[in-house]
Amino acid sequence: MSARHIARLGLFGALWGIVEMSLGTALQAAHVPMRGTLLAAIGITVALVGAAFVPRRGALLTIGLVAAALRLFGLSGPAISSVAAIAMEALLAEACLAAFGYRRSRASYVAAGATAVLWDLFHPGLGALIIGGPGVAVSFWRAAHKAAQALHLPGTAPAALLVTLGLLRLAVGSAAGWTAYTLIEQVRCRFVLDDA
């Protein structure tokens, strides 16, 4: 891998890291709902654009790992959940690009963005599952059903809510992938790049 490509990976990783450290900390302090989705969408857009200018396998994952490492040592303090989420989002997006054979198409970018942002829905549950075991996951599900009963909602309400939140994240992720593809085309049109 050439020095130019490594420099691009580092700088795009730094940009994702800055977004996580500055905007992420601000959103966390303000208790903004669905902040993880917003951060994932911005981060994956940056990573997809960066990976497009490094025609190597694993470029997107490297950008994500650099951002995760920066988040680990960020001034706002280490956040194990954020670090793991960034790494997983990058891994899923990379897997998605690999599934499309690393062909640069709008469909592959939309799929990668949607998959990465959808992870935000499952991340807290998987964390609880790893730390707490299956018992905690079952407890959470029972608590959701009890909450639905207390609010006089049908028994399918928790599942319906989960599906709605998933669709919302898929839409945001698809928009991120779409935006990334558009930005890549515009940057390529405006700047003469030496991709050697």
Binding site: A7, G10, G17
Partner: peptide, 13 residues
């Protein structure tokens, strides 16, 4: 590659 990329990222913040 990752080590150098991380170093560049840290120095470019």
């Amino acid at each position: 590659g990752f080590g150098l990329a991380l170093g560049i990222a840290l120095n470019s913040l």
